[in-house]
């Protein structure tokens, strides 16, 4: 009767509790197995793949997309979508640049400003969706363009460098873990991704906000008639996602040591792809952060592995697209049998 626990598990995310972790891992077994298969396949194909340095590079490459995908997961679980997360990330990076480089203010203020700006923009998107009843796709499509434009206007289309902020690159490139355990130089960006994912998994599986997130995606009208202020909670989810985009903005600008205003478009699609590969339903109500993490890893393992095998970038794109379709198809098959 494993299927019973399996079904139960699907309603909540499971990163934080042992018993439920088992159920969640079981549900995500397929995605996880594909990930392992990819890793083994690439390791056999090229001796350069399974090296500590390359694994670290893969993890590092996952960090930004992973954080964005965690943000997207929350919104998608409500039955919505957020197309603005890519350009919002850039916008937040620009805000950090303005505060730190132009304003010369201390580092913590810059970080807070970036996260705060993200949350505010998310709140705005949430307001459009929840209160003004604009379909999420359209509201966030509009927001995506607005933010792209604003980033270019603010910066005059030129990058803002963080050369005057000592330690800014360390935020993503440094390794706190490496300081403690020299054999394990995990970049801070990866640590951040892990913490963000853990926090989101906790929120989704253990808190009122999380339970409403699933409930909204499952049957919004039922939630409203239960006397829940659905608009407010939905706005909270978008704001939370926005704040996380702020973190992504910090990560990416730290890695580039600059806020690049032209960057950002297209990141939202990669993030959504990771969410979908991870088994979250675009209709809302079903999915887990663990799945999203696995989805994001699959994408970067694929990119990295194909590059090591010297596959042309054009073909890498084709393969990624095919993988998305395959992943969702496999998930469907599993669901029909289960």
């Amino acid at each position: 009767m494993n299927a019973t626990t399996d079904k139960t598990a699907s309603t909540a995310s499971q990163l934080s509790s042992g018993a439920r972790l088992a159920g969640g891992a079981q549900q995500k077994l397929l995605a996880f197995a594909s990930l392992i298969a990819l890793v083994i396949g690439f390791s056999l194909a090229s001796p350069n793949f399974f090296q500590v340095s390359n694994i670290m590079a893969i993890l590092q490459a996952t960090s930004v997309n992973g954080v964005l995908a965690v943000a997207a997961t929350a919104v998608i679980l409500t039955g919505g979508i957020d197309l603005s997360i890519g350009t919002l990330m850039t916008f937040c990076a620009v805000v950090a640049g303005v505060v730190l480089t132009w304003g010369g203010l201390p580092l913590p203020l810059g970080l807070l400003a970036a996260i705060g700006a993200g949350a505010l923009v998310g709140l705005a998107s949430g307001t459009f969706v929840a209160r003004m009843k604009i379909p999420p796709f359209i509201a966030t499509l509009g927001m995506m363009l607005v933010l792209k434009g604003l980033s270019l206007i603010i910066t005059g289309a030129k990058p803002i460098y963080f050369n005057d902020t000592p330690g800014y690159t360390e935020i993503s490139q440094g390794s706190l873990i490496g300081l403690v355990i020299p054999a394990l130089p995990v970049p801070n960006g990866v640590l951040v991704l892990f913490l963000v994912a853990l926090a989101m998994a906790f929120v989704l599986s253990r808190t009122v906000l999380g339970r409403y997130t699933y409930a909204l995606g499952s049957n919004e009208e039922a939630v409203r008639l239960s006397g829940v202020n659905t608009n407010a909670w939905k706005m909270a989810v978008y704001a939370l996602a926005g704040g996380i985009c702020g973190i992504a903005g910090i990560l990416i600008s730290s890695r580039l040591n600059s806020a690049q205003p032209a960057l950002g478009l297209g990141y939202e699609l990669d993030a959504i792809a990771a969410v979908v590969i991870g088994g979250t339903s675009l209709a809302g109500g079903r999915g887990t952060v663990l799945g999203t993490l696995i989805g994001a890893l699959i994408m970067s393992v694929l990119t990295n592995g194909l590059r090591i095998l010297s596959v042309a970038p054009e073909w890498q794109t084709v393969v990624t697209g095919a993988i998305i379709i395959l992943a969702v198809y496999a998930d469907q098959l599993r669901r029909q049998r289960g």
């Binding site: 309603t11 699933y214 409930a215 499952s218 049957n219 009208e221 039922a222 109500g285």
Partner: peptide, 12 residues
């Protein structure tokens, strides 16, 4: 349509 979040469990 209005009473239950059908995909969620009994306790929820």
């Amino acid at each position: 349509h209005f009473g239950l979040a059908l995909g969620m469990n009994v306790a929820d």
